[in-house]
Design a protein around this nucleic acid. Structure first.
Length: 713
RNA sequence: GCCAAUGUAGCUCAGUGGUAGAGCAACGGUUUCGUAAACCGUAGGUCGUCGGUUCAAUCCCGACCAUUGGCUCCA
């Protein structure tokens, strides 16, 4: 809801995401069309609702949007009206005229409401434009773009005339925060798309239709792969049905074979760990909100007397605490020369004061009030020991693996140590973020942690990348990109562990390996994990949609927090580096991706229904008995070789049985009639590819087994 | 978590202020059929949940839950 009283922040921070003029000049023809279309949409909206205030209106991957504040709530029913006005503006073929102004002129016109408007709008200043003006660095030219009556603060570039916008359509309306700031005003955002011509626009919508057809939620339900039982299990926690479990286990098999060959060893860990685990790892308190709330294990449960004692002690501790705090205040007021420490002055952080008092007491500096502090420290410790224990569901596997490393002494000879596990993790994703299998709260990660020395790092990291490429090949992924996320100096000590040299060293190492092994990557600053640089792996499905499926991180910080060490050649203890890697990401997201990628038509090795034996003749017909026996023999032979085979000996007409199997997406159908039986043959039909003709039984069986073993596409 | 839309049978969807309908799937039967549907029948629903208005609510109103599209987030 636009709030009239809510003003944009008065002293905006420079926006690091802000595009420079150079960046803007690189806009493609299509981006110019879309950016221009955003202006045309604003023009149309102003004709309908002249009080609208506009914020940002950029081109985006599949179109454009414009954010605005407007009392009227735009609904999809309004699109037709807006589009009609847009068509008029395009038909008028107005020139996009660039006007360079001074900062003073721009501020004056923003104050009069002229910017992002069709006319002056007294009393309705262009408040977002005023804010945007403040972000333009001194010395950078300030420009307007004008089409017809509409004038917008804009660095461009645009197409020549409104008529150059070939074809467009408004697509959706959504809410968006001003500058993406959750605390900022919430604006209405209208999305649209535009193309050079109608043909390209139609193609785009066709692609969307295709994506809808391949939607993993739709196909997952059709094929009986998974269910999300929000009522009994909970939102975001998929149940794998038998056929989906086939996919899960085939992927695990692939990963286990691949990792075994690459020298990994497997481990298993519980789903829970004590609070200390995540305090040590550093995940608490920073990521507490992404974790499920802890399970409280009260050792005094069922002992009311003990609980009463604990409560009494709690009150006593609270009282002593206030005594210590007032002693701290006295110290400062009294300016005790013995202390010689003025840290306490002006610092009203109670925890800090308590800590300081405790330190002074411990080193014997404290004279007055020492008794109280001592009592407080002792009783507080006692009280803390009586508190319930907290156990957290794990949101990541690394801490458990670190403890496995710590469970045994290690020497440099043990390294690299590669611990792999399909570990189940739980993350409390916000309700609005859940999305089918793609964003869930319970997930199975293809996880492993590689502990290695600095010298080994490059080889290990390279091997991990090669594993990614191997998987891409199996799944026929032709387009991929690795996003190399690095730190930013201003985040050190806040968002990132404060180890500037280690950051630089590891980032350099990662960059070098990426370049040396010819990996397709882009580098993005300020998106690393808190413990080290990160590589997100993006892949594109068969229909060209992008998915971030895997992640790969370098960790030079957390092993040290856990005190992990190995004894080096020189007999000194050293801390290993750790590479977190999950090439197949989570089962949930990866299978969601595969469903779309294959449109549910999985290759034979993955297909939940690999083979179905279909007879021309029914089991309940005595005349067909020899045929059924022949068919059962084939099914049994395949089943004996671990092939997932089903049979259909029902009395339905053959066309019906074929259709059932096709709709189920059974990969290979073996259609068997009297002719086949007499020839010792089977007729093969492949899903989506039709009949392949009859072949000798032995040949067909061998072919099926080979295709599965080789994981043929 | 925020904004909006949606929620009727396993699936796709109709429908009405007077206690619900179709097609497909399922089940039963007839048919004995050579590669995407032969025919007949049966069963299936507290109309997301809770509350309010009303003589009467699946329908009107409110809250909640869930899903979807976005935003924010994604160690």
């Amino acid at each position: 809801m636009p709030d009239e009283n809510q003003q944009p922040p008065q002293a905006p921070q420079p926006n690091p995401e802000r595009k420079t003029l150079d960046d803007r000049a690189k806009m493609t023809e299509l981006e110019r069309i879309r950016h221009s279309c955003a202006h045309v949409m604003a023009t149309a909206i102003l004709r309908l609702w002249p009080d609208a205030q506009f914020a940002y209106g950029p081109p985006v991957e599949n179109g454009f949007y414009y954010d605005m504040e407007l009392k009227h709530r735009i609904a999809p029913e309004d699109f037709e009206k807006i589009e009609a006005e847009m068509k008029k503006e395009i038909k008028a073929n107005n020139v996009f005229e660039r006007i360079v102004v001074t900062r003073e002129q721009a501020i004056a016109q923003a104050q009069s409401g002229r910017l992002g408007g069709l006319t002056d709008r007294p009393g309705n200043a262009s408040k977002f434009k005023l804010d945007l003006l403040q972000q333009i660095p001194e010395g950078e030219p300030i420009s307007y773009y004008k089409n017809g009556d509409f004038i917008d603060l804009c660095a461009g570039p645009h197409v020549m005339r409104t008529g150059n916008i070939g074809a467009f359509k408004l697509t959706s309306v959504a809410a968006a925060y001003y500058k993406g700031d959750e605390k900022g005003p919430q604006l209405q955002r209208i999305y649209g798309t535009a193309f050079k011509n109608k043909t390209a626009l139609d193609e785009y919508f066709k692609m969307l239709e295709e994506a809808k057809r391949r939607d993993h939620r739709k196909i997952g339900a059709e094929m009986g792969l998974f269910a999300i039982d929000t009522e009994f299990v909970g939102p975001g926690m998929p149940l794998w049905l038998p056929k989906g479990t086939v996919l899960v286990e085939e992927l695990e098999k692939l990963a286990k074979e691949t990792e075994f060959a690459a020298g990994y060893v497997r481990v298993r860990t519980p789903h829970l760990a004590r609070e200390k685990m995540y305090k040590t790892s550093g995940h608490l308190p920073y990521y507490a909100e992404s974790m499920f709330p802890p399970i409280e294990l009260d050792l005094l449960r069922g002992k009311p007397d003990e609980i009463a004692k604990r409560e009494a002690l709690g009150e006593e501790v609270a009282f002593l605490r206030s005594q210590v705090l007032s002693a701290a205040a006295d110290l400062v007021v009294g300016d005790n020369p013995l202390i010689g420490d003025v840290d306490l002055v002006g610092n009203d952080d109670e925890e800090f004061q308590l800590q300081k008092m405790q330190t002074l007491w411990e080193d014997g500096t404290l004279m007055a009030g020492a008794g109280i502090v001592g009592e407080f420290v002792a009783k507080q410790q006692n009280w803390e020991l009586m508190q319930p224990e907290l156990y957290y569901l794990k949101a990541m596997n690394c801490p458990h693996h670190h403890r496995i490393f710590a469970a045994e002494p290690h020497s440099y000879r043990d390294l690299p140590l590669r611990l792999a596990e399909y570990g189940t993790c739980y993350r409390y994703e916000q309700s609005g973020e859940l999305f089918g299998l793609m964003r869930v709260r319970s997930m199975n990660m293809n996880d492993a942690h590689i502990y290695c020395t600095e010298d080994q790092f490059a080889d290990e990291f390279r091997a991990v990348n090669e594993m990614y490429l191997k998987y891409f090949k199996i799944f026929g992924l032709e387009k991929y990109q690795m996003r190399f996320s690095t730190s930013a100096p201003e985040g050190l000590g806040k968002k990132y562990v404060n180890e500037p040299e280690l950051w630089k060293k590891t980032e350099d190492m990662v960059r070098r390996v990426l370049i040396e092994s010819g990996i397709n990557f882009v580098e993005v600053a300020n998106e690393a994990a808190f413990y080290g640089p990160k590589i997100d792996v993006q892949v594109w499905s068969a229909i060209g949609r992008e998915f971030t499926i895997a992640t790969n991180q370098v960790d030079f910080a957390v092993p040290a927090r856990f005190g992990l060490q190995y004894k080096d050649r020189d007999n000194t203890m050293k801390t290993p580096l750790c590479i977190h890697r999950a090439p197949l990401g989570t089962h949930e997201r990866f299978i969601g991706f595969l469903i779309e990628h294959y449109a549910g038509n999985f290759p034979l090795w993955l297909a939940p229904d690999q083979v179905r034996v279909i007879t021309i003749g029914a089991e309940d017909d005595p005349a067909s008995a020899p045929l059924i026996a022949y068919a059962k023999g084939i099914a049994a032979e395949l089943r004996g070789q671990m092939v997932r085979v089903s049979t259909d000996f029902s009395n339905s007409p053959i066309k019906g049985k074929i259709q059932d199997a096709e709709q189920l997406r059974v990969h290979t159908m073996l259609v068997i009639g009297g002719r086949d039986m007499d020839a010792g043959a089977v007729s093969v039909r492949l899903h989506g590819k039709g009949p392949q003709g009859a072949k000798a039984k032995g040949e067909v069986v061998a072919e099926i087994l080979a295709a599965i073993r080789e994981r043929r596409a």
